[in-house]
Amino acid sequence: MSKSEQITRTVGKPPILAVALLAVVFAFGLFIVGFDQGHIFSVIQGVDAYEELYIHELTHDMRHAAGFPCH
C-alpha cells in the first residue's frame, strides 16, 4: 500500500496569519504601555477605570523612560 503526503510550503513571505497575530500583539502592547488612560479596564470597571488608571500607573515609569508622552 502506498501512502502519499502533501506538504505545502510558502517561500519568501511569512504566513498572513502569523503576520496578523504579531501585528495585533504590536498594536495592543504599544497601546497598553504607551497610551492607555483607563480604556482597557473600563470594559470591566466602567468609568472608575479612568480615575484609577491602574495600567497607566503600572506602565508610568516605562512610558516616560521610553519617550511616550505622559501627564
Partner: peptide
Amino acid sequence: QKSGQVLAGVILGLAMGSLFGIVFA
C-alpha cells in the same frame, strides 16, 4: 509604578519585537 517598570518593558518588548519580527521576515 516602579514595580511595573520591568513588566512594562516585557510588554513593550513583545510589541516592538513583533513589529521587528514582521519587518525582518
